[in-house]
């Protein structure tokens, strides 16, 4: 049994200490994946914590034989997807009701320039374009580039075959590259 499996066995016995260890081990990837998916630090902090709380609430369903992080990722990405959907609805609603200050506030949130380390033009542009990608493209770019997961790990996390990892990555990168054409030339 590897370390995660032991922790999961302990967690299922109700050991809070084991749960704490899992949280400490995975809090950073959890936060940064959420940040990439929703693009806002406050929301990413909340959503990643919410995902851990759901793990705790559903620990009976945890299977020590399966990879913890791929299970966790499914919960996290669903939370982020729902969050984005809610934000989109809110945006539309506000747009239609013409509340300008609210709109400005939402735009500011979406921009959140504090997300990146270097604020050079290319990095900011790239980040803008990544945020605009469809969810499935965005997540695979984030998992590969920013988290450095292997194809095998990605295939477990997204529950798709290796061939699909490659082709999805191809189409995601192609779209990103095409949208950034002006930067590259």
């Amino acid at each position: 049994m590897d370390q995660d499996q032991q922790l999961i066995v302990q967690l299922k016995k109700g050991k809070m200490k084991a749960f704490q260890k899992l949280v400490e081990k995975y809090k950073k990837p959890a936060f940064f994946i959420a940040l990439g998916l929703v693009g806002n630090r406050d929301d990413a902090y909340d959503l990643s914590q919410e995902a851990f709380i759901r793990v705790y609430a559903n620990m009976r369903k945890l299977n020590p034989k399966l990879k913890f992080f791929s299970w966790f990722y499914t919960i996290l990405s669903n939370l982020c997807k729902n969050h984005l959907r809610k934000m989109a609805v809110r945006k539309n609603y506000i747009k239609s009701s013409m509340a300008n200050t609210e709109m400005k506030h939402l735009k500011q949130r979406a921009l959140s320039p504090d997300v990146l380390v270097e604020k050079n033009e290319i990095a900011l542009r790239l980040w803008e374009e990544i945020k605009k990608l469809p969810f499935e493209f965005k997540e695979i770019i984030l998992l590969k580039h920013f988290q450095g997961f292997s194809y095998k790990e990605i295939s477990e996390m997204l529950n798709i075959p290796m061939g699909s990892v490659m082709s999805r990555l191809y189409y995601a990168r192609k779209k990103l590259k095409d949208n950034l054409k002006d930067v590259f030339n």
């Binding site: 990146l116 270097e118 990095a123 790239l126 770019i141 920013f146 590259k177």
Partner: peptide
Amino acid sequence: SFVKLKEVTNKMRFA
């Protein structure tokens, strides 16, 4: 062009 994209993306870091 994919190589180039990868170079650029590798330089982008979240704070």
